[in-house]
């Protein structure tokens, strides 16, 4: 396990940096998608794995980020980094009141509340035609430049590296976060919320803060997806995407940093392979997921750890 720990990250980085030159256009786009989902799943694991708050409405913030960056890019043609920042901030801002109310509840109640709020936001995106384009969404989102007058990001490889860098920055940020005093407090809350409260601090404050951070990171993922795909649509806020993010986290390994990325990879690849055989791929993904929940609760990372430890 030790050499894997040391060289694994380096090797992964090298592969991710070189891969774009060895992939066909479609494959590169798949890899880019994968990174976006990895970031999205990672943000969910911050609240779900590290704090023990299972959100069933995380897609809402992905979608908010997507709409935010799409609107900024279409109407103001701002450079991409500004659109990303705008999307992330917008998502975090909306998450604040939602988190404030939802954290009054815990466990299943919390999950249901986040789902309800997400459905509310989804309906809003669906009905507010003037702003969101309703069910058609916003199409023609441009890939603008890196800064005003700076290099263009239209070329797929350039955009891939933008997303790779965004993902790496977010990953390092999350890593620092879970190892910080705040991050350890989150884990303590996950372990025993009542004890934490009797030690002198209100756990809810921590939960709201991490909920907003996770939403902003999900918003960043969404903000990346809009220019990458060229559109933002209500589908990005749908409960199905929230559920899929949960699946990625569980499949990869809850409460770990690399788990969500591995889960996203498995999910995207399985979907890619299955969908080339059948349009009903969800049937099999769902069944695989059910089996994993029953037999592999720690996910792939959990199983690997047990194997290496034994």
């Amino acid at each position: 396990m030790a050499p894997l720990r040391r060289w694994g990250p380096v090797a992964t980085l090298v592969v991710l940096a070189v891969l774009p030159w060895g992939l066909a256009r479609h494959q590169l786009s798949l890899l880019t998608d994968l990174l976006i989902f990895s970031l999205f799943a990672l943000s969910l694991d911050l609240i779900m794995g590290y704090t023990g708050m299972v959100s069933f409405g995380h897609a809402a913030y992905f979608g908010l980020g997507a709409y935010g960056s799409a609107l900024l890019l279409i109407h103001f043609e701002v450079p991409i980094p500004i659109a990303l920042l705008g999307g992330a901030l917008g998502a975090g801002l909306v998450a604040w009141p939602v988190g404030y109310i939802s954290t009054r509840a815990t466990g299943i109640y919390f999950a249901m509340l986040t789902l309800a709020f997400a459905q509310l936001l989804y309906t809003l995106a669906y009905k507010w035609r003037a702003l969101t384009g309703g069910s058609d969404g916003i199409a023609g989102v441009p890939k603008t430049a890196l800064w005003w007058g700076g290099p263009s990001l239209v070329e797929p490889r350039a955009f891939y590296f933008l997303i790779l860098v965004s993902f790496l920055v977010a990953f390092v940020l999350c890593r620092a976060l879970v190892r910080s005093p705040f991050g350890r407090a989150l884990q303590a809350i996950r372990e025993n919320e009542r004890k934490f409260a009797t030690l002198g601090q209100d756990p809810r404050r921590f939960k709201v803060i991490v909920f907003v951070i996770a939403a902003a990171l999900a918003g960043l993922a969404g903000a990346l997806s809009a220019p990458f795909r060229g559109f933002a649509s209500p589908e990005a806020m749908f409960w199905l995407l929230s559920g899929q993010a949960l699946m990625m986290v569980i499949i990869g390994g809850i409460g770990t940093l690399v788990g969500p990325a591995i889960g996203a990879m498995v999910f995207v690849l399985v979907q890619e392979v299955l969908s080339s055989y059948t349009e009903h791929w969800m049937l099999f993904t769902g069944a695989i997921f059910v089996l994993m929940v029953i037999f592999l609760p720690g996910g792939i990372v959990g199983a690997a750890r047990r194997r290496f430890a034994a």
Binding site: H280, M282, L283, A287, V290
Partner: peptide, 17 residues
């Protein structure tokens, strides 16, 4: 309890499809 919620989510996907 969250695992039961996730399991039924998987079942929902299968049944819907």
């Amino acid at each position: 309890p969250i695992y039961q919620l996730l399991l039924t989510f998987g079942l929902a996907l299968v049944l819907e499809e």
